[in-house]
Amino acid sequence: MTTKQIALVTGANKGIGFATARQLGERGMTVLVGARDTDRGQAAEKALRENGADAHFIQLDVTDDESVARAAKRISDEFGRLDILVNNAGIAAINRLEPPSGTSLDLLREVYETNVFGVVAVTNALLPLLRQAPAARIVNVSSEVGSLAIMSDPTHPLYPFISITYPSSKTALNMVTTMYAKELRDSSIKVNAANPGYCATDLNNNEGFRTPEQGAEVTVHLATLPDDGPHGQLWGFLMDGKGSYGVVPW
């Protein structure tokens, strides 16, 4: 069995997920590139390998129970454990922003399938492998728009953003993170949520003011926490005008 740390990143074929996989690979880890689309996943694996990473494409659609089960079995058969799980796969439906009164339930269900239910499905399937690692880390990639404190603060720059679909999915993900953290508080597994900030990716038509690489730094920090690192926090970019990082209020 390899002594290298093994990290799975979902939605790793582009954007913050790809940047996260690359940064973890640069740290000498074996990186499992989770992606729905085989061609895109294999292309990401190839690009990471050309950059020197020990990368392996894993076909993984977080909304498909059979795909999740196959991915978990392959990781178990080939590696026997998992040191880091980054639940990065997500959708925003940014082109279909609607006010609460105009919310499409079909769109709401679609977003929740990936951003919330998919995280639970993948985490539950891989938790036995995470328990086999000496000190595993789970990082759920969330967002400050899921913070009740921020979105209800009239003085915050994000206050004008009014939509249920994406923000509420991240609020739910924050609670999911909190509950896993409580369940695993007496184990060696640390569970945290990452706030990468507004990064330019396909999720927002590349309109963000931060790069995917900057967003990935937040996730990588939480994925490589020491044994005395934080547990059960939403941590990352603070929209304070200073470019600071720290704990983001739930």
Rank of each mutant, 00 (worst) to 15 (best):
G52P: 11
Q214F: 01
P99K: 10
D39I: 04
K182A: 14
A133W: 07
N115L: 05
S163Q: 14
A53P: 06
D153L: 08
A92F: 09
E110C: 09
R109M: 10
T123E: 10
E110V: 10
A21M: 03
A181P: 09
R137A: 10
D228Y: 08
Y180P: 15
R185N: 07
G236C: 05
G208I: 06
A7V: 01
I150M: 09
N13F: 03
V139H: 10
T177S: 12
C199I: 07
L82A: 04
A194F: 07
A194Q: 12
W250K: 14
L105N: 02
G243A: 03
L107M: 13
V220A: 01
V116W: 05
V176L: 10
N88G: 06
F79Y: 14
S244C: 01
Q5Y: 03
Y159E: 03
A136V: 08
K46Q: 11
R40F: 04
T201G: 05
E26R: 09
K4F: 06
G102S: 08
A53Y: 05
N195L: 02
S169G: 11
V9G: 00
A89S: 12
A136Q: 09
R27P: 01
L234K: 15
M29N: 07
E45K: 13
Q59H: 07
P99Y: 12
H221K: 11
F117D: 01
V68P: 11
T3D: 06
S147L: 14
F237G: 00
A43C: 06
G229R: 07
D83Y: 05
N88P: 11
Q23W: 09
L126Q: 08
K4D: 04
D202A: 11
D64M: 03
M175E: 04
G52Y: 13
D37Y: 06
L222Q: 06
G229M: 08
L97H: 04
T177F: 13
V220D: 01
A121N: 13
P212S: 02
G236L: 04
V31K: 10
R40T: 10
A216Q: 04
T178L: 15
